[in-house]
Computed example of a mutant assay.
Amino acid sequence: MPPVAAELTGSWLRRMALASGLPAQDLVRGILNGSQTVQITGTPKTALEAYLNAPARSALARFTRVPQSRLYELLPQLGPTHPRLSDDGGPQAAWFTPAHAWVTACPQCTARAWSRRQPVLLYPGSVGHICRRHRRWLLANAHGPASVPLGILPEVMAAHRRHVALVRGVAGAAGAVAVAAAMVWSWLAQQWWIGDKLWSRRAAALASLTGCPAVSVAAHALIAYPETISVAALLSNPQWQQRLRQSASDDGLRAAKAMALEDIGRWIGRPWLVDWLTADARTRRPGAEERDPLQWWLGQLTGPNPSPGDLWCVPDSLARPVHYGDRLTFLTDLRVREVIDGAKAACLTGGWEPVPHRPSPAGPHHSSR
């Protein structure tokens, strides 16, 4: 039983255990058992992902008869060794919370590996959150299939095609998406989504597909996904960046920002964006510009000797909040507890997110998708 590409190591071990008729912990202990004492931290009931040290990875390869090099290709978190484990001594394993977002695989695409008792769990990487073949946004549910059909949301599928092209054609595309997400979030957080026809329609569609109130789904990444990808494509365009640099040099940063907003507004189908934000800025507290992701990005772009990496490392204080509940606090006047339960039941609070760019940890076997 080989692993599925990008599968959680813990997911694969659970599937092998189910096929063998064993508890997952007993399977792991059996794989690692030898002349040396086996050390296992945690249990499959307490966390989803399994981490192995170097001796344990070697034992896994021997047991499954799959070369380690192939396992590293298929299992993104198999190596390097987790910081809480050591390669000294005998084999070690640990069950920890996954370090990255994960989703439940499309059951049609993984039919041979699928089981009702143990679904295939995957790391979506940059663009694996949508199954293009079956037109579904994949959600995170460790107990069964979970996804959103996108037949009534063709703009989301179109955005995913642009997203894939962006990742393939632009270095640092994930960082550009993170910065774009921060910008779009800064507008969404002003409860713009309530009056915006496109966002309101998507929220209503997602609510009807999941059985949740619209306010419960408003914090999901799907709502602003098309605009986020459009803005990311614009931000990563070298010709557009040069136009902004020239505008800032000739007329100052304020003029460059006005130009950027006009272009973004046209690009995402909101030509009124610059007027709306200008009017809104008059009522905001002093210092609001310092918390504006677009203002920050323009400062990076037009600063002295900017490096490409500087454009995409959005500060945590400006980034789109990672946790679903944190985002909900900006989008509703209701208590979060009153609206988040429905989102949790519909598996909307986990899964893929346009997370801020962070340097990849060094390691001989680290890989990212």
Rank of each mutant, 00 (worst) to 15 (best):
V120Y: 13
V120K: 11
L122A: 10
L122Q: 06
L122Y: 10
Y123R: 13
Y123L: 14
Y123C: 09
P124Q: 09
G125P: 13
G128V: 09
H129I: 03
I130H: 02
I130A: 02
I130W: 02
R133L: 09
H134Y: 05
H134N: 08
H134Q: 09
W137I: 03
L138E: 07
G144V: 08
G144K: 08
G144F: 07
A146I: 05
A146M: 05
V148M: 05
P149Q: 08
L150T: 06
G151Y: 07
I152Q: 10
L153N: 04
L153G: 04
V156C: 00
A158L: 08
V164T: 08
A165S: 10
A165E: 08
V167A: 06
R168P: 03
R168K: 10
A171F: 06
A173R: 01
A174D: 10
A176Q: 04
A176T: 04
A176R: 04
V177C: 06
V177D: 01
V177T: 08
A178L: 05
A178G: 12
V179Y: 06
A182C: 12
M183C: 11
V184R: 05
W185Y: 13
S186E: 12
S186F: 08
W187G: 01
W187T: 02
L188R: 00
L188G: 00
A189R: 11
A189S: 15
A189G: 13
Q191V: 03
W192E: 02
W192K: 03
K197P: 10
K197M: 12
K197E: 15
L198H: 10
W199M: 11
S200Q: 04
S200W: 00
R201C: 01
R201I: 00
A203D: 01
A204H: 07
A205E: 01
A207S: 13
S208E: 14
S208F: 03
S208W: 03
S208V: 04
S208L: 10
T210V: 06
T210G: 02
P213K: 02
P213Q: 04
P213E: 05
A214K: 06
V215E: 02
V215H: 01
S216R: 03
S216D: 05
S216G: 07
A218S: 05
A219K: 00
A219S: 09
A221P: 01
L222R: 00
I223L: 05
I223V: 11
I223P: 00
A224F: 00
A224M: 01
Y225G: 00
E227C: 00
E227H: 01
T228A: 02
I229D: 00
V231R: 03
V231I: 15
A232E: 04
A232S: 08
A233E: 12
A233Q: 12
A233F: 04
L234Y: 11
L234I: 11
P238C: 12
Q239C: 07
Q239K: 13
W240N: 05
Q242R: 15
Q242G: 14
R243M: 14
R243H: 14
R245E: 12
Q246H: 14
Q246M: 14
S247W: 11
S249D: 12
D251S: 15
L253V: 15
A255S: 11
A255N: 10
A255M: 11
A260F: 11
A260V: 10
A260R: 07
L261S: 07
L261T: 09
E262F: 10
D263E: 14
I264V: 15
